[in-house]
Amino acid sequence: MRIDLQDLHFGYHPEHEILHGVDLTLAGTDPIAIIGQNGAGKTTLVKQFNGILTPTSGHVLIDGQDVTTQTTAKWAAKVGYVFQNPNDQLFLDSVRKEFEFGPKRIGMAPAEIKHRIDQVADLVELTDELDTHPFDLDDTQKKFCTIGAIIMMNPDVVVFDEPTCGQDVHGDHLLNRLIRHLTAAGKLCVTISHDMTFVAQNFKRVIVMSQGAVRLDGTPEAVFSQTAALKTCFITPPPLTQLAQAVGFTATPFTTDAFVRAFEAERK
């Protein structure tokens, strides 16, 4: 699975451009995080991946096929998109129906839907809630219900818009497990997030956006070590990383273990 953005320009109004020529290739299965200040154009960018928004100029190619050649509903089978606010996506009266809805739309076989429900429910920990009304779930469960509803369609790429927002530690762990599972299954996860600790620990590639353009693109170590550039994008590295940078470590640690190792190395 491969998404190519070629000199992508986009604006909601002709005189007010939001994305100023983005060139990007997303390929393979290594999970990708997109970070940046509010209004940097992250959501606007990922909405191009399945044609929810279409470029004013430039191209979006999905496995070589231009995104404008078919409708978003058709792309749904290939590119899954989890919206930020679950209330915008959920409308049926049980989790099970939500899970069945998308697959039915894209014409998945009933036997496969049945098989997948158990699998996905287990993955998002909603096995006991399949017959619950989505509005009776707590916020974290509701979020995972939307995520589950998209994963049910078995897309090759899953786009998450702020999955960490308003979630507890358990939710973060669950999300971490989910992303690893999808990666192992050969899926590409693209995630917008403001939670830098989560980004640093769970992603292999980090893309930093600022004012409608890609500013940094690389491994978390490469991105979070560029303190000056990050500052201009209004991004602060995870607290532990900031501490390491403040005391002048050469390494860029994200976990306690990594920090201790770096500390030991510096002491020698």
Partner: peptide
């Protein structure tokens, strides 16, 4: 927004 969200779930 809701229209976009449903399109992303395969609703034409």
């Amino acid at each position: 927004i809701i229209k976009e969200a449903q399109e992303a779930r395969g609703v034409e």
